[in-house]
Amino acid sequence: MDTGGSGESAELVERALAAARVAEETDDWDEYRRLLWRAAADGPGSLPLALELIGSPDPVDRATGCDLLGNTSDQNEAVRGRAAAALVGLARRESESCVLCSLAGAIERTYDQRAVPVLVELAAHPTPGSAVRWPAPSRGWPPACRTGRTSARSSP
């Protein structure tokens, strides 16, 4: 990964990607969420990392990029507009259900009005397994698109 993010953030994201690949098999996403939350604390420094990831041909990378954008937006108001714009652009071309789920969680956390039409479209997505179904409020965030890989809403 060759980006403008800080060295520590880049290392955390690399470790999160490795954890994601393991968690795809084990369904244990705790380490993944913890690492991405820490990487996102870099704020504007983590934005280039996330933008590079959402441009990857690998859906695991793109989903991780979405999760990183969501965490970064949640922790750093200054990046929300750029994150929302990138996620809206990705939503126009994305078809992988795992990425769409992460995208839904991330764009909601930008608190940007551009998220609303994207979320409405994702809620009615025609691909089986891709429609985002939000749990009842008592069950909390995030959307239940697939087991485990939902982005971290709060610090672990």
Rank of each mutant, 00 (worst) to 15 (best):
M1Y: 00
D2I: 03
D2W: 01
T3F: 11
E14F: 06
R15E: 13
R21N: 00
Y32D: 08
Y32P: 08
L35F: 04
L36P: 08
R38P: 01
A39V: 09
A40N: 04
A41G: 10
G43Y: 04
G45Y: 01
G45E: 10
L47F: 00
L47T: 01
P59T: 01
R62G: 01
T64V: 14
T64Y: 04
D67I: 06
G70I: 07
D74N: 12
N76C: 10
A84V: 04
A85W: 01
A85E: 15
A86H: 11
A86E: 11
A86N: 12
L87V: 10
V88C: 09
V88E: 13
V88Y: 08
R93M: 05
E94Q: 10
S95P: 03
V99Y: 06
C101P: 01
G105Q: 12
I107C: 07
R109I: 09
Q113S: 02
R114P: 03
A115W: 11
V116M: 03
P117V: 12
P117F: 13
V118C: 10
A123Q: 00
H125N: 15
P126Q: 10
P128I: 11
A131R: 11
A131D: 10
V132D: 00
W134I: 11
P135A: 04
A136S: 05
P137S: 11
P137F: 14
G140T: 06
C145D: 08
R149G: 15
S151F: 08
S155G: 15
